[in-house]
Simulated assay, not measured.
Amino acid sequence: MPALQTGLFFGSFNPVHIGHLIIANFMATQTPLDEVWMVVSPQNPLKPKKSLARDYDRLHLVQIAIEDNPQLRASDIEFGMPKPSYTVDTLAYLKEKYPSRDFTLIMGGDNLATLHKWKNFEHLLAEHQIFVYQRPEYSLGELSGHPHVHLFEAPMMHISASYIRNCLKHGHSVRYLVPEPVFRYLEKTPLYQ
Rank of each mutant, 00 (worst) to 15 (best):
T104M: 04
G145C: 13
F26A: 01
A3I: 13
T31K: 13
I66Q: 08
R175T: 02
K97S: 10
S173A: 11
G141C: 05
W118T: 06
N166P: 02
H158E: 15
G141T: 11
P99F: 06
L8P: 00
Q129R: 13
Q30I: 05
K117C: 11
E35P: 04
W118D: 05
T104S: 08
P42Q: 14
H123E: 10
T29K: 08
G109M: 12
S162H: 02
L52Q: 12
A28T: 02
I64Q: 06
F13P: 00
E122D: 14
L52K: 07
F131T: 00
V132T: 06
R135L: 04
L33F: 07
A161D: 11
K169P: 11
L125Y: 03
Y138V: 11
D57E: 14
P82E: 00
Y98G: 04
E96D: 12
L8A: 03
E35T: 07
L105G: 04
P45I: 02
I64Y: 06
L186D: 01
S85P: 01
S41C: 11
P45G: 05
Y185V: 03
F26I: 03
G141D: 06
E153Q: 15
L33I: 05
D68N: 13
Q43N: 15
K188P: 03
I130D: 01
A92T: 14
M81I: 06
K169N: 14
A28K: 01
G11L: 01
I159F: 01
Y176L: 10
S41K: 03
L94C: 13
L94P: 12
L105S: 04
P147C: 10
I164D: 05
H170G: 08
Y176D: 13
P155H: 15
P84F: 01
Y163Q: 09
Y192C: 05
Y86T: 09
L46A: 15
D89P: 02
S75I: 03
A113D: 15
A126D: 08
Y163V: 08
N44E: 09
S75R: 07
E153S: 15
L140A: 03
